[in-house]
Design a protein around this nucleic acid. Sequence first.
DNA 1: CTGACAGTTAGATAATCATCGAACTGTTAA
DNA 2: TTAACAGTTCGATGATTATCTAACTGTCAG
Lengths: 100, 100
Amino acid sequence: MKTSIYHGDVDRRSFNRISKALADPRRYEILRRIAACGSEASCVMLKGKFPITPATLSHHLKELSNAGLIEIRRNSKFMYVELRRDTWKQYLKELRSLSE
Amino acid sequence: MKTSIYHGDVDRRSFNRISKALADPRRYEILRRIAACGSEASCVMLKGKFPITPATLSHHLKELSNAGLIEIRRNSKFMYVELRRDTWKQYLKELRSLSE
DNA sequence: CTGACAGTTAGATAATCATCGAACTGTTAA
DNA sequence: TTAACAGTTCGATGATTATCTAACTGTCAG
């Protein structure tokens, strides 16, 4: 993820990418599901939780990954994803700075 | 703004509306500008700050208002907007609940 | 009253994007 | 080796939406 000269901050581009990633309800639900699994969530499990095709799930996971919101790990046939808590924390920090 | 049976919480519909409202970079900048004026921001001032037509600004303000993010006050010819800090606080609370 | 200004609404356009099916790559199990 | 499965990529489609212009309403100053 890109950072500005101030370490730990999200620059505007990253911030907007995250905001867009969160704006789709289904994608937000997927992210929530991932976050709810303390550590890693398997892609197979996610596929079972939502009425969407593999193609669509793949698309959403790519968007979340591009936004820096999840980390992807591959183990041969399978895929595991995990919330990037550092990104999440920085995003919340930016939002919080809007008011007081 | 709609609330669930738990007072102070945003329901899913409201949450998604807010997320969508924040997803457009220009609209987020407008909201930021509004929030930066401690109390009220005049619409005339906002119009001067962004290279957009009155129609577009009107559209964005309506979206922000529909999302419950701003309060609108009219004084004869003029319009003033203010951040709704209660909504903002609840939105942040919902986001924070995603991780720990 | 009349012109200027604040803001809205309607309709058009162009861009973005969520979703799907189909065809693909890569991996494992039989 | 082959079939089944995990996931990706591509192209199409339909929905949403940011933006504009143009025409409108309402308010004030001269």
